[in-house]
Design a protein around this nucleic acid. Structure first.
Length: 816
RNA sequence: GGGCGGAUGGCGGAACUGGCAGACGCACAGGACUUAAAAUCCUGAGAUUCGCAAGAGUCGUGAGGGUUCAAUUCCCUCUCCGCCCACCA
């Protein structure tokens, strides 16, 4: 028989699947639903192996569930807004919309050659006004609920290009285009008050435990960063003027060791105390220098820097001692209060700072063998030099000190989060326009719902110079105030693209609705998504934003569950030579080429077989070759199964083959559904195929081997759908598509073995094996073991101290 | 610096809840088929020692220690690698 002709066969079935809309679905209350969701791609121009992996994994699960009778929703779309389109516009003089649409059509074609079971009728692109209209609608709802608000925030600014830069457009402090040093600039921007949901986002993890990778839950927990501690007020004195400085600390037990304070250069006390600060020139110079640095530069500086605020001092409330105050850029504005109480003996950063500025270091926690000579001691211990708290253990002291602070009235117990509000403003063109209007009389006014969507104007220029193209587009900016009709200006910021990806999976449930974002009853049928699949790099941002958005929709009464994704699978990277495939490394393998050479079934099989989905996958062309051989091995069984044998099969031979088949059916089901471990499912199928090759009675066994082959094809269908469809329809005369046919069932009785071979250990070493009846009792096993010649030899007349038997597994003799 | 993962033959990987480490595949070697090669089919194989062989022994899951009759799996210490976040008080 000729090789599996993938070129013809794969194309043929892809066309039939599309023509017959095999994967189109509708809500059906009589059927159990399964929503399989893969992270939608950014239309960068070409599919890469990471995409192929992501979508192959999803396809296995979707097809498996279809064959198990579920009503499967499996959609695909495009995360179509974003910076690269705008960069392309500047570089190649092509409109972002045109560039994006071209890329989508190329990648859509590539996706179709993968043979994934998508319902293409549900395709969406986030740059379509029909989609982003609802981003605007949700934004207005958030605004009405006080969840969208304006606040000053820092952006990277290139003084030469006169433009705002994204973090990725700044490397080593210079603009990516003109290489001039960038600056920081404060702008009034839009935020979403995601921190209102901090606690709930943490609580929700309880529901996800066991269904999401622990890794992702831990990362989100640390990202949200809830910590318990105390807020403490320090009095400050500057000449006749007095004030106070609030700090947050997780270690109130070290309060007696505070020997100085430090504030972030941006802290408001610096400007408030301007007249009292005696070395103002020096201080303001330092503040300006810090402002010019990026956060990364600030964090990478090896040496701690700072300037003392001369003329003001603080008082340590626990002992009344006067301590100096510094501004220092190792203190962050965003966390806590932007000011710290420094305990050099027990915080390494404070220790380094104190050494440099000759500030006293007072030990207040004494651990076993602890020392503060060479570095800070950050561990636990008992309190010393701490007045009435001496000799209390530090972990206990935290609460004791907080209670005392509270009673004395200079502080209180607090909870602090690392988590920040979501800055959604972007000073860009290619994004969803924020639907707000600035009126000189009425202030900020939302665009009336009936006027949505606020469409992006098409006729703008992309120069890369100056501000966002929207700012210079007169027809866009100039509007009448919806309230008072006087001339007003449109908001020119667009939304972060994470907004688009925060609810697209809900839109898939009702993708063409032009009356509302989605029909609640349809969404109620499909959501939450049963399985979400994507890269680990989205563990924190996207997966937190999407969870937040879902909770917000729930509060609007639009969705009925609390969490959008029941199960999560984070796939590993595809690497070559140990590192991720990337253009800059020049180690990219194009899916198109490989598919052309081996067919898509082979490529899918390799990607699913070479590593478990969660782990890194090393690309190997030899591995692909191996899968190609296996595909053909399965293909050739069509001939082999009909070969006449000279001997006829005994019942024992047939039973043995059938037992192997039932075992395989069971294992493949468990591996796909419960373990999401496709590599072992595939190797089990390989073993069954090897068995069929070793079996000698093919056409002389009353159809048993044919039955086994048929089930093999069914088990393989989720992995290599084209190959299996062809064999199913042609060789087995399947009436319907294989994806609509029934998954194999196994018979537990067929799997049971009557006897089992178990190893016998003597003092931990295997010295022989015995064959016993399944579930034999312990005494019998012991007798059998002791009668064994090899075991007797190993025992060598020694005394048996102990006999341990693990049922049907192993027997151990401990002797002396 | 912090957080989260990981380390098993020449390579990718397997191993239920602590129970025969190395399934399956790749690469390799040998054989069959062939005029020959490719393809295909079959067989072999962790390392090491003894043995002509059948076989027998020892070592072996990053390193070192511990618990256990038994550890890739549990505990402690350390090394290296990857990913994410960057001085989080």
């Amino acid at each position: 028989m000729a090789d599996y002709n993938y070129k013809e066969i794969e194309k043929k079935w892809q066309k039939k699947w599309a023509d017959d809309k095999v994967f189109a679905v509708k809500e059906d209350g009589k059927k159990e639903k399964f929503y399989c969701l893969e992270m939608l791609p950014y239309p960068s121009g070409a599919l890469h192996m990471g995409h192929v992996r992501n979508y192959s994994i999803g396809d296995v699960l979707s097809r498996y569930q279809m064959m198990n009778g579920k009503n499967v929703l499996h959609p695909m779309g495009w995360d179509a807004f974003g910076l690269p389109a705008e960069n392309a516009a500047i570089k190649n003089k092509i409109h972002p919309a045109k560039w994006t649409k071209q890329n989508i059509s190329v990648m859509r074609q590539q996706l179709k050659t993968l043979g994934i079971s998508y319902d293409w009728d549900r395709e969406i692109a986030s740059c379509d006004p029909e989609y982003y209209k609802w981003n605007q609608w949700f934004f207005i709802k958030m605004y009405e609920k006080g969840l969208a608000f304006r606040k000053k925030a820092v952006v990277n600014w290139c003084p030469v290009c006169q433009t705002v830069l994204a973090n990725e457009q700044v490397s080593e402090g210079v603009c990516w285009r003109c290489k001039s040093p960038t600056e920081h600039k404060e702008l009034e921007q839009w935020f979403v008050k995601i921190t209102d949901y901090s606690d709930e986002l943490l609580e929700g993890h309880k529901e996800l435990t066991g269904h999401w990778p622990q890794q992702v839950l831990s990362m989100q927990q640390n990202w949200i960063g809830k910590s318990y501690g105390a807020e403490v007020d320090f009095k400050i004195f500057a000449g006749n003027k007095a004030g106070s400085l609030k700090v947050f600390t997780t270690r109130p037990d070290t309060l007696f060791g505070v020997t100085f304070m430090a504030v972030a250069p941006e802290h408001k006390i610096v400007s408030e105390m301007k007249n009292e600060i005696k070395n103002w020139d020096e201080v303001s110079k330092y503040a300006a220098q810090s402002a010019a640095k990026t956060n990364i530069e600030r964090s990478q500086s090896k040496e701690k820097t700072g300037v003392e605020l001369k003329g003001i001092t603080a008082e340590n409330p626990v002992n009344g001692s006067r301590i100096p105050i510094f501004i220092a850029d190792y203190v962050l504005t965003g966390y806590g209060t932007g000011a710290i109480m420094a305990v050099p003996a027990h915080d390494q950063r404070d220790w380094e700072f104190a050494k440099k500025f000759n500030i006293p270091i007072i030990e207040v926690i004494k651990g076993e063998n602890s020392s503060i000579e060479k570095s800070a001691y950050e561990g636990e211990g008992v309190l010393v030099n701490s007045g009435q708290f001496n000799n209390i253990k530090s972990d206990k002291a935290i609460n004791t000190v907080i209670d005392w602070i509270d009673k004395q009235g200079f502080g209180k117990k607090t909870i602090n989060f690392k988590f920040r509000d979501w800055l959604i403003s972007r000073q860009r063109y290619w994004g969803t326009p924020i639907p707000m209007i600035h009126c000189s009389k009425c202030g900020i006014v939302p665009v009336p719902i009936k006027d949505l969507p606020v469409k992006l104007p098409e006729d703008v220029e992309f120069t890369g110079q100056g501000e966002s193209p929207l700012k210079t587009c007169e027809s866009f900016i100039n509007v009448k105030c919806p309230k008072c009709s006087s001339p007003a200006r449109r908001e020119t910021d667009t939304m972060d693209t994470f907004v688009d990806s925060s609810w697209y999976f809900i839109r898939y449930c009702d993708p063409h609705n032009d009356k509302e974002a989605f029909d609640i009853s349809k969404v109620d049928y499909w959501m939450p998504a049963d399985q979400y699949i994507g890269g680990i790099e989205h563990a924190c941002m996207h997966l937190i934003y999407a969870r937040f958005w879902y909770k917000f929709l729930r509060d609007l009464g639009m969705v009925k569950s609390d969490e959008p994704f029941t199960n999560l699978l984070t796939q590993g990277m595809v690497t070559l030579g140990g590192s991720a495939m990337s253009k800059s490394r020049g180690n990219v393998v194009s899916p198109d080429e490989i598919i052309d050479k081996y067919g898509v079934d082979t490529v899918r099989l390799f990607i699913l077989f070479a590593a478990p989905p969660q782990k890194q996958l090393e690309w190997s062309i030899e591995g692909v070759e191996g899968c190609w051989r296996f595909v053909n091995r399965v293909w050739r069984l069509q001939d082999i199964i009909n070969v006449k044998s000279s001997v006829s099969a005994a019942q024992k031979d047939k039973d043995e083959l059938l037992r192997a088949m039932h075992k395989t059916i069971k294992k493949v089901g468990v591996d796909i559904e419960k373990k999401l471990q496709f590599n072992t499912a595939i190797s089990a199928i390989m073993e069954l195929v090897n068995f069929l090759y070793a079996y000698k009675f093919h056409s002389n066994d009353g159809g048993v081997s044919k039955e086994v082959y048929k089930n093999t094809v069914i088990l393989m269908a989720p992995f290599t759908p084209h190959l299996c469809e062809e064999i199913w329809r042609n060789f087995f005369n399947g009436k319907d598509y294989i994806s609509r046919s029934k998954w194999s069932v196994f018979d537990e009785n067929m799997i049971k073995e009557e006897s089992v071979e178990i190893p016998v250990q003597v003092n931990g070493k295997v010295r022989g094996t015995i064959t016993i009846d399944m579930d034999s009792d312990e005494d019998l096993v012991k007798d059998t073991a002791l009668k064994n010649e090899k075991i007797q030899k190993a025992l060598d007349g020694k005394k048996i101290i102990k006999f341990i038997y693990v049922k049907n597994k192993i027997a151990t003799l401990v002797v002396k």
